[in-house]
Write a protein that binds this DNA or RNA. Structure first.
Lengths: 147, 147
DNA sequence: TATTGTTATACTCTATAACTATA
DNA sequence: TATAGTTATAGAGTATAACAATA
């Protein structure tokens, strides 16, 4: 029989897996892929960005961003615009439909949050977030140690 | 400013991302890839398995399992053994080093669980797991509706 | 010299479709 | 007929290394 700690970790991982599955459903619906959705989400957070910035934000190589942006240009979600001051750089910029997709993503995110947590008491949600934050802090310490 | 519900979802996603990053670290250390680790983990849960069984367990096509098993055979973690009663099927079976890798995975999993939760009170862990389970149940309902 | 992005190359994961061997 | 696994083919994501243009 698993310990209480192991059960807690397993339950967290179970929820992670379910959320990932839900994302896959959205991918199929939208015709987008995970990394491209992640890129659009990043653009929604920061506005038009250089590929270097996106490379850091997504944690992948610049070469990889080239490929993702190529795909999103082909699907009409973004364009490459001139950087106003640095002629080496490009500004990856959402098109009108790209902006709509980003807004849909944000709306879906908020809807999901409401559906999952709105029926709980504020107290329960607060306690949950507090424990999550504690787990995150511990995990970050562990990961820094391992460096 | 995000709502409390949105903050809760964001915190869950943050933890998911951190756990994924930690897994990537393990991948680099072990020379394995995510899907191959997942396959070895499944073997650890159920023992030697047919590729059909693994296909269902991992949620990927049988063709894909062929590729993953090819890789794990090449790296010496598993072998394809004859199925005792069905000559069409193969039993993917861990080698000695493969078994050791599986044990390492299980040990790492338990260590992580202990490090993340052992210093909390039983009461806090119980409340956390209860809320997680509630979220999981709600999410599963939502995903079934969407079908 | 350093940085931005691309071309060249290679590997892994993924899928569908057609095929072989066996049940 | 149905099932287990493989071959054939294709597309996406990832990485390193070498290169051009610009800072």
């Amino acid at each position: 029989m698993p310990t209480e700690s192991t059960q807690a970790l397993n339950t967290v991982l179970h929820l992670s897996a379910l959320l990932a599955t839900d994302l896959v459903r959205y991918e199929h619906e939208s015709g987008l892929t995970g990394p491209r959705i992640q890129l659009l989400w990043a653009l929604g957070q920061t506005g038009p960005s250089t590929q270097q910035t996106l490379s850091t934000a997504l944690g992948v190589t610049p070469r990889n961003i080239t490929g993702l942006v190529d795909g999103l240009v082909a699907s009409g979600h973004v364009t490459r615009e001139k950087h106003p001051t640095d002629r080496r750089a490009t500004l990856v910029t959402p098109t009108r439909p790209g902006d709509q997709t980003i807004k849909d993503l944000q709306d879906s995110h908020e809807d999901l949050a409401r559906q999952l947590f709105d029926r709980m008491s504020d107290q329960q949600v607060s306690a949950f977030v507090a424990t999550l934050s504690e787990v995150i802090a511990t995990l970050q310490e562990l990961m820094e140690e391992a460096t």
